[in-house]
């Protein structure tokens, strides 16, 4: 989740109404009932609403992911790992993204009802954008150097995992890669 704050453009959303909407509305959208206290703890909403600071984007996104995780499998409300979304296996995580990209009509209705004008009717666009961006930016971040980059020296502490996986060899300033000109032609006119 930490990576999100580094990657997602953070619109100054009216976060409190969204958090309240999820707290109050998600129980009605689940396949099986979940005790209220467990749900609030699972989503972490109380902590968010208590804090005075403006709610940054990543907890909001986490909240949406966790709400959808509960929709996919209400039993993720408790268990090992930190939160409902992280308790899902890869295949069920994909189900969460299917709902987001959908864009999950039940959740859209719930959020749009609570968003103030002029932001009403923006929930589906937001879910669709997040459904795509979370996956794209996780890939971009995950296969880049950020985890091993030392900002002070602007050097790498280690070889990035993504380079190791993909067999990537960086260049210092260039490479002996020149293979001539196609059919020997170095210029064209007309």
């Amino acid at each position: 989740m930490d990576a999100l704050d580094r990657y997602l453009p953070a619109p100054d959303l009216p976060a409190v109404p969204l958090v309240r909407a999820l707290r109050d509305g998600v129980p009605g959208l689940l396949r099986e009932p979940v005790p209220d206290a467990a749900l609030r703890a699972g989503l972490g909403v109380d902590a968010l609403l208590e804090s005075d600071a403006t709610i940054p984007l990543s907890p909001l996104v986490a909240l949406l992911l966790n709400a959808e995780a509960l929709r996919v499998d209400p039993r993720t409300v408790a268990g090992p790992f930190l939160a409902p979304f992280s308790r899902l296996a890869f295949g069920r995580k994909a189900d969460v993204f299917e709902l987001l990209e959908g864009a999950d009509p039940d959740l859209v209705e719930l959020l749009d009802a609570r968003l103030p004008e002029p932001l009403k009717r923006t929930a589906s666009g937001l879910l669709r954008f997040l459904g795509g961006a979370l996956l794209e930016l996780a890939a971009l971040g995950g296969y880049s150097e950020w985890a091993v980059f030392d900002p002070a020296s602007r050097r790498l502490r280690d070889r990035p995992v993504g380079w190791r996986i993909s067999g990537y060899t960086p260049a210092a300033e260039g490479r002996p890669e020149f293979r001539g000109y196609y059919q020997g032609r170095t210029e064209v006119t007309g």
């Binding site: 580094r6 971009l140 980059f149 602007r154």
Partner: peptide, 12 residues
């Protein structure tokens, strides 16, 4: 630098 996140991270 030549590094991808340092250059292309859309936020920073």
């Amino acid at each position: 630098t030549h590094l991808e996140n340092d250059a292309n991270n859309p936020l920073t």
